[in-house]
């Protein structure tokens, strides 16, 4: 399967734009204010392909803060709280699904 950046965009529900922070690779989310946040709760959420593409285009204009932006599904619960929309994004947000060696 191609990486999300290489796939044709399909929007069937709420989505956000995510990327990796340039300095350390940390997962970041595009905010409504046009910046990046490590908190998914700060993400700008859109629900149409046109809006997602616009958000993505804006995010890609400057690659000094974050790299490899793409559109990722999110889940919005009844209270408006955001959660990752698939396993890949859950792992990006929460880290590996097993205890790391220590």
């Amino acid at each position: 399967m191609a990486a999300p950046q290489q796939q044709k965009l399909k929007v069937n529900g709420p989505v956000a734009v995510t990327a990796n922070r340039l300095t350390d690779g940390a997962v970041v989310w595009r905010t409504k204010a046009g910046g990046w946040s490590v908190e998914l709760a700060d993400a700008a959420v859109v629900t149409t392909a046109d809006d997602a593409l616009a958000l993505l285009a804006e995010a890609g204009q400057r690659d000094l803060d974050a790299v490899g932006p793409y559109v990722a599904p999110v889940i919005v619960d009844a209270d408006g709280a955001l959660a990752p929309g698939n396993l890949r994004e859950r792992i990006r947000v929460a880290g590996p699904t097993f205890e790391l060696p220590h």
């Binding site: 990796n20 350390d24 690779g25 940390a26 997962v27 790299v67 890949r88 792992i91 990006r92 880290g95």
Partner: peptide
């Protein structure tokens, strides 16, 4: 040898 993975380099 530097890759960018899911949540880090």
């Amino acid at each position: 040898g530097v890759y960018l993975q899911l949540h880090a380099y």
